[in-house]
Design a binder for these strands. Structure first.
Lengths: 76, 76
DNA sequence: TTTCATTTGTCCGTATGTATT
DNA sequence: AAATACATACGGACAAATGAA
């Protein structure tokens, strides 16, 4: 579990997005699989839900994942 | 916590810059770490925010630190 | 069918930090 | 020196839909 640095020059939400992206590219999260939920990210990295949401939104904007309401976010 | 002399020949912003520089060179603020924020300097030395900003600007001009908008100032 | 937990969607307010004027 | 704007982050609350029990 990679750790994030809230005092570093890179905002936490970008650090989290980078971690997820690395796991997608490594195959840890295969195409079609679901990435961690917002709540799981909150528990894993001890960040606010807004931060987790922003990380997911960034991945979505990059076309890496798609979010299904009430279901989760899945790797494209 | 070194004190600042507002009546001395050396302007407060230079005194502060010197203090920070000494801490960088001593390793108290390692490379990549964040130095105190403007507000922290204001609280620590009871100076105006302008003074803190000027001290940081001086360190930046000397190439000792880099400021990342919305994140802070970091030791190079 | 009803109940329940899960998950995302959408607000609110507060705090911090820098940028600008 | 003061006010304003913007970005980031936290915490909380409630709604809505889904799917499982």
């Amino acid at each position: 579990m990679t750790t994030i640095d809230p005092t570093g020059p890179v905002p936490p939400y970008r650090q989290i997005a980078a971690i997820i992206q690395a796991r997608i590219e490594s195959g840890e999260y295969p195409q079609g699989s679901r990435i961690p939920t917002e709540s799981e990210m909150v528990g894993t990295w001890e960040v606010a839900r807004t931060t987790a949401r922003r990380a997911i939104a960034l991945l979505r904007d990059q076309g890496l994942v798609a979010t299904v309401p009430q279901r989760g976010t899945y790797v494209l």
